[in-house]
């Protein structure tokens, strides 16, 4: 099996701070891969560099065997991206946004419109299709963003926190679509810090911490018989300080009770 994504020593620094310190990310083709890590681990930076949106300070990245920075034409035709923060072209309607991004990739208009219509139906956005994206809610934005990332039928899909701020119904729609997508042999890579979700969806996991990949492989191998959450906390060392000795002031035991109210003659009548 070939690798859909393979990076070697990917490196990025902002001033003094090293955001990504030599990442060797591997994702086999056809897998549903989760990139997990605590906040600030470098997940977003890594994904931005792999998708060609951020220039790395060192290292290489390959998608389907094509070098991201040397073969942008091949790479960009193969990837779909849903970045974090999700700014879209806000003054277009959902339908116009899909049409625009499909045609920008050179697809014929009739084909783009057909696909857009289907995507809107699947994403349950038909009712809002002619409203401006600027007025969309977070869940709707994620869905229209995903639709626009899928429109050109990419072979590798990159999603940065696709489920954050999404209601359960929309999240279900998203996962259904993504499951069907990977079942056909395409690859999905998404970053998240919701372990349950990763455990439920993914068959491949890469764990990042402080700019490094600390574990990577099939889900079963990474979690080694435990829950993924436990394995994760152990890997990133997150169990240390929680009940160590700090925060002694926190909790009901340490709180000063409010001064007692002045005695009232009549007991208060509650509303009936």
């Amino acid at each position: 099996m070939t690798d859909a994504v393979r990076t070697h020593g990917l490196f990025k620094r902002y001033g003094q701070q090293i955001a990504v310190a030599g990442v060797d990310l591997v994702v086999p083709a056809g897998s549903f891969a989760g990139l997990v890590g605590p906040n600030g681990a470098g997940k977003t930076t890594t994904l931005s560099m792999i998708t060609g949106l951020l220039r790395p300070d060192g290292g290489t990245a390959e998608i389907d065997g094509f070098h991201v920075w040397r073969d942008p034409v091949e790479v960009k035709a193969r990837i779909g991206v849903l970045p974090e923060g999700l700014r879209l072209f806000e003054r277009l309607s959902g339908r116009e946004l899909l049409t625009y991004s499909g045609r920008l990739r050179g697809l014929p208009k009739a084909e783009v419109e057909r696909r857009a219509e289907e995507l809107l139906t699947v994403m349950d956005l038909t009712g809002a299709a002619d409203k401006l994206v600027v007025d969309y809610s977070t869940g709707m934005r994620k869905k229209i963003g995903l639709a626009s990332a899928l429109l050109h039928n990419p072979s590798v899909l990159f999603l940065d926190e696709p489920f954050e701020g999404v209601d359960p119904v929309s999240a279900n729609t998203l996962t259904e679509v993504l499951r069907g997508f990977t079942a056909s042999g395409s690859t999905v890579i998404f970053s998240s810090h919701v372990m349950d979700l990763v455990e439920r969806l993914c068959d491949w996991v890469s764990v990042m911490n402080q700019g490094h990949i600390v574990a990577q492989g099939p889900l079963e191998q990474v979690r080694g018989g435990r829950r993924l959450n436990e394995a994760f906390l152990e890997l990133v060392g997150g169990t240390g300080h929680a009940r160590g000795g700090g925060l002694s002031w926190l909790g009901a035991g340490a709180r000063q009770p409010a001064p007692a109210p002045a005695p009232v003659d009549e007991p208060r009548q509650d509303a009936q």
């Binding site: 949106l53 942008p72 091949e74 960009k76 970045p83 923060g85 072209f89 806000e90 991004s101």
Partner: peptide, 14 residues
């Protein structure tokens, strides 16, 4: 375009 420029950038292969 501001921060939505990425939508164009991911399609610009050349």
């Amino acid at each position: 375009d501001g921060r939505s420029l990425w939508m164009n950038a991911v399609t610009f292969g050349s």
